[in-house]
Simulated assay, not measured.
Amino acid sequence: MATLVRVVETGSFSAAARQLNVGQPAVSKTIAQLEGRLQVSLLIRSTHGLTPTEAGLRFYERAKAALREADEAELAARGAGAGLSGCLRVSAATTFARLYILPLLPRFLDDHPDLEIDVILDDRVIDLIAEGIDVSLRMGNLPDSAAVARKLATGGRSVFATPNYLARAGEPESPADLAVHETIIYSQLTDVWSFTREGAEASVTVHGRIRVNAAEGLRAAVLADMGLTIGSDWMFGPELADGRIRRLLTDWSLPPIDLWAVFPAGRMASAKARAFASFVAAALDEVYSQPA
């Protein structure tokens, strides 16, 4: 049943095999044996991949529910979610994970010695089902309205620059001043920055010769005194604390950014995923909710 569920959700034998840590022939043989025992075709094979037949879809839905109940029964027998075991696959943006999530993992693993964690670092929004992800940590607006998500924290957003850059280019006194500054532009965001102050609004179109598609590149360019940028206060937390980065236009506000735990749609979040999300929320509230 577990093999059939993985094949349906990934759409291929090879992807299911990678998630199950077995060879592709083993997955094909398991599905063939299952179809032989049931005396019915469960999958339609084509050049476009694998899709379930009507019988396969019915079996998939029941099998998924049965596997979920089995997992929950095992955890209940062990006592209130204690003793989590197996592998938990987590995805997160590279910079946020490096600064805030990876340093927390020893505490979580100490609480659950039978658990392993597979961390996938990627700034892109990835397909949770295709990649076999149990929980994804995402920032900002969720593009998939059908996603099962839990808000973990809310962080501020600011304009940042190094003291060296400001000594060379001057410090902006209003949002309009940003138009003449060299800006490190994050390609996943708009070039128009909107600010508010005491009910007033101000928008400015920024310009820059450097555009990056990952937060690690944004951090590196700013720390190299190449320009200013906009980002979450989480992004430059350590540097704000030691003075290597300054927060600018502090009398103006930018829209805050939310951190979400996102679970695969159409599937009940596992106890491991729920426990990890709760742990991250508590840790961020305790340590990082008020960046320096």
Rank of each mutant, 00 (worst) to 15 (best):
G199W: 05
A130T: 10
G170K: 02
D251K: 11
E35M: 01
A215Q: 15
R58S: 14
L43N: 07
I133Q: 03
E69Q: 08
F279H: 06
D122C: 05
L240D: 08
G49Q: 02
F13K: 00
R197W: 10
A82Y: 12
A32K: 04
R62N: 11
I245H: 08
R89W: 01
E286A: 14
P103H: 08
D191C: 06
I133H: 01
A93W: 04
L34Y: 00
R45K: 15
D71P: 06
T51G: 07
A15C: 01
V206C: 02
I44T: 13
H181P: 04
G266S: 06
A269R: 15
A73E: 14
V280C: 10
P163L: 08
R138C: 06
G243H: 08
A215N: 15
I257C: 10
F13Y: 14
V40R: 10
Q24G: 03
P238T: 13
A265C: 13
L121W: 01
T47P: 04
L57I: 00
E35T: 03
L50Q: 05
A146Y: 09
V148C: 04
G227E: 10
G217D: 01
F263Y: 15
D285G: 15
F276Y: 13
A261F: 09
Y288D: 14
R247W: 09
A277W: 11
I31M: 01
W234L: 09
Y100T: 05
A224V: 07
K29Q: 12
W193R: 13
A179V: 12
I44Q: 13
G155N: 09
A77C: 00
R150I: 01
I184W: 04
R68C: 10
S270N: 11
A55E: 08
H48N: 09
Y288T: 07
N141G: 07
A224G: 05
F108L: 02
G156R: 03
R6Q: 13
W260Q: 02
A32C: 09
L128N: 06
G132K: 04
A169R: 07
G170R: 02
A153E: 12
N21M: 02
Q33D: 14
S41N: 07
A271H: 06
R89G: 05
